[in-house]
Design a binder for these strands. Structure first.
Lengths: 346, 346
DNA sequence: GTTAGCACTCGATGGTGATGAGTGCTAACA
DNA sequence: TGTTAGCACTCATCACCATCGAGTGCTAAC
């Protein structure tokens, strides 16, 4: 945020944002001058408000309504005015005990994280499982579905199971497949899918001359098995919770939001952006090119296991979200999930 | 439907339902008497309408609006008045060519079916994958996650991959696991999970005395692996399409419907009911105890592979659905999917 | 049994005026 | 020069009211 605001303007902006967060309604100068101990008359507040509107932090739905913070206003509030308190130990304990991961598949555990996030924040919970390309290889199995059609099953170090169907030029015998399987399971252990891909294409180029026909085919097979993108998993929970918010009362708006939430692709793009940085990221309104979540904010944080198996989790809610509460929850949850992932992947 | 209606009443009921389906608005006596070549004056139509209302086939939102069919009215219409035409060959061809299943995993294929169903019907598509207990065993793999925690992976004959984590009392060696795996893969081939469960519990009881400690443990392990219920998969597509319908304009109603669509459990119960009978089933409004889809209708049909691996697919839309179009589509799609399933599972 | 006629109901539409929250502007004040 | 009181103005909201018209129920005549 480039602009500087003097202390009084900051106080008033903060007061407006806070009032708006709790009321969901435009706030007027009187309310500010009375409730918040600023000792300023409504008229003074009005002057400041006019300035803030000029600068783009506020806007008014119409002449005689109060002011509503713009996404720029929220942004300034979060960057400069909001002090995010840490969770108390008891809150941390409560959050920790919400999760009973033991004996769960990773998929189910992540889904559960989404549910809990949605439950405690009262907004919509989002969890994106670690991208396939960044997961660490543990085991591969081939299964002959018919001649030339193979089902490939991978298991990642964290216990994520992915499968897909590939077509092969060669009609492999069970014995050949077993050999290939053993070879791959030995060689690839502990590498990420991305590393494996790079390595494979290198090897194929280098060994083209030396390798036998069969070996070359085997390499091609494993390349095919690992190359094609497997759909990344996004878990969305509590979509209807977002409807409780008064600002989402118009059917058109509801439709837009649900279309976004239904399209995994859009969510993946959104969460991918959040994944690049460390720690909690906040996307406000349409600020992020993503007109998709106009009027909404996304608070998200990446989580990771030992070897860069990165996923993202977060909460989508109205722009008017209770940031001071949701931010530490998302933050701590990401740490919690990271810790569990590290423990499990040993 | 027990009641009998004379020809004229039937004609008028049919006219009202048809008008209401296309307009989504209460229909009055005048419109009926004019548009449909019944040669009856509005007054006569009114008399009949009053009778129909008395009998529960119609209701009026208020005194001076027209009449709207009740769920009983729709029911009568579908049972006695609607003649469902078969799809023309070109329509069948078009539908068939919408699907490109080859090289797809079963999960993806079913998801795709939902998408297409939703697309051509303009309502919400629903597909429930074959229940785990009725799928035919093809292969099982065990993977040691940590001491005593095992990841079990099943593959069904149709290529459906399921996995889950189980805890075992014994810390198996890789060699032991391999033996168990081989044994199970040989013995269980071609049986449904349900058959396997029955067989296993029989064997455990019978062989308790004779078998060695290790054998008993192995049996227990496989029982644990196959007993616990794996979540059944429901694919929902085009949820937002239902919002296009004029009757779903109130936020409360939208919320209710989306809550139902979000809760897989409720959908499974609903689709399970539809699965018991052969062919297309129709649930109208809240008629089916399921207040969950009040105001909606569900048109569904089971599909199956060679050996009773039964799933269900269908369409959820407003009560005022275009039944004459959707019913044959659902019917034919179910046949199509069954055919593909049978071909694939050989 | 059918229909024309008619009084009646009731939602939808649109105009009017009062209300009140909130603003911008100006002039006075410290 | 910054702050404030005062005041005219704007505009959404609401209640009220008259009008309109689609549609009904009832009755009497055909």
């Amino acid at each position: 945020m480039s602009e500087d605001l003097n202390q009084r303007s900051q106080n008033i902006l903060e007061a407006i944002v806070k009032d708006y967060i709790s009321s969901a309604e435009p706030v007027g100068s009187r309310a500010i001058s009375r409730k918040h101990a600023l000792n300023l008359s409504p008229a003074t507040v009005r002057n400041v408000m006019a300035d803030l509107e000029e600068m783009g932090f506020l806007c008014s739905p119409h002449t005689s309504a109060g002011r509503v913070p713009t996404s720029k206003g929220f942004h300034y509030y979060i960057d400069s005015l909001l002090e995010v308190r840490d969770l108390s130990d008891s809150e941390k304990a409560r959050l920790t005990s919400s999760y009973q991961f033991k004996g769960m598949r990773l998929e189910d555990a992540l889904q559960e994280v989404g549910r809990v996030l949605s439950g405690i924040s009262s907004y919509t919970g989002l969890v994106m499982a670690p991208r396939f390309s960044s997961t660490v290889f543990r085991q591969i199995e081939f299964l002959r579905l018919s001649h030339k059609r193979l089902l490939v099953i991978f298991v990642s170090k964290t216990g994520l199971v992915q499968n897909k169907v590939i077509e092969s030029d060669v009609d492999w015998t069970p014995h050949q497949l077993e050999n290939i399987t053993n070879y791959l399971n030995q060689t690839l252990h502990g590498l990420t899918i991305q590393e494996i891909r790079n390595q494979l294409s290198d090897e194929i180029q280098q060994e083209r001359a030396r390798a036998s026909e069969l070996q070359q085919q085997a390499m091609k097979l494993s390349q095919a098995a690992l190359n094609a993108e497997v759909e990344d998993n996004v878990y969305v929970s509590g979509t209807t919770r977002i409807l409780e918010q008064p600002e989402f009362s118009s059917p058109e708006l509801i439709k837009k939001i649900f279309q976004t939430l239904e399209s995994k692709q859009q969510l993946i793009e959104l969460l991918d952006q959040a994944q690049t940085a460390d720690g909690v990221q906040i996307f406000i309104g349409s600020q992020s090119q993503h007109h998709a979540i106009e009027g909404c904010s996304l608070i998200s944080s990446p989580f990771s296991g030992k070897k860069g198996a990165i996923g993202t989790l977060g909460v989508i809610g109205p722009m008017r979200m209770d940031y001071s509460q949701v931010i530490p929850i998302v933050d701590f949850t990401a740490q919690l999930v990271s810790r569990v992932l590290e423990r499990e992947s040993e």
